[in-house]
Every structure is written in structure tokens, then in C-alpha cells.
Amino acid sequence: MNRVLFASLLGDRKMATAICGAALLHLGCTAAGHFGWSCPILSASGVPCPGCGLSRATLALLRGEVRHALTLHAFAPVLLGALTLLFAAAVLGPEARQRLSEIIRKIEMRTRITAWMLLALLAYWTLRLALDGRQFIALVT
């Protein structure tokens, strides 16, 4: 399995800008109470995907409501950190962006942190569904 994921996103300015723009638009719509991006898995099956609830959790985190944010989704701080790095990659010049991408690439190669994070997110989602699925669905829908 390829170990590098996040560094490749950071190294691609077009992708970093598009992700940041879409995330800001979606967070803005969610904050304003409008309908933002709807998850295709949730809208088709009624079962939230592992990322469902992250937007509201991130917004709660930005408002300083840490406990509420972590109740909604424990990965909100991770997403906020990732978005901050992507925003930096979008606004930095080519050299600085490459340097940032290279630093993250080394960390990913050494620790496989992105793969572990994705696995942890899957495990977290499975546990939430298995332990209290009904409450989890009610919380994020």
C-alpha cells in the first residue's frame, strides 16, 4: 500500500485549493443552517458514513465547544489540522509548498500516520455503529 497520501495532496496546489474552497463553502452553508454537501452513502442508505458529523463537529470546535465537538465526532481536531495544512499549501509559494509537502512526506513514510488515521476512523465508525447505532444516526442526521 502506498504510504503517502496527504503529502501528495499538499504538493498539488490545484487540489489543495479545491478541497479548501469546497470545505469552506460546505462549512459556511452548514453554519448558516443551509443544506451543504449531502453524503451519498447517508442519503442512499440512511446509514452515516465514517465522515458524517465531521462538519458540525469542526464548526463546534471553531466556536470553542470542545466537548460538543468531540461528542459529534472525535476526529474534528484532525480534520481542522488537515484543513489548516491544506490552506497553507494553497496560499504558499511553490518552494514553500514543496518544502511543506516534503516534510509531511517524510513523516508519512516513517510513521504511516495517514493510513493509521484512516484505519482509526473506520474503527471509530464501526464502534459507534455497533455500540449505539441509533443514537449515532440521530446525532449526525
Binding site: 502506498n2 487540489m15 478541497i19 454537501w37 451519498p40 465522515g51 484512516l118 476512523l121 473506520l122
Partner: peptide
């Protein structure tokens, strides 16, 4: 590859953006 694919499942918005790009 697999890692990007898994990210695409977990975050459909990424799949959507990648698709358009």
C-alpha cells in the same frame, strides 16, 4: 491506489473534487 480510494469512501467530497479535476 488504495489509500486515496479509502479516503474517497470516507470523504465523498474528496471523490467529487478529484473527479472534476
Amino acid at each position: 491506489g488504495v489509500l486515496h480510494g479509502i479516503l474517497g469512501i470516507l470523504c465523498a467530497l474528496y471523490t467529487f473534487i478529484w473527479g472534476w479535476i
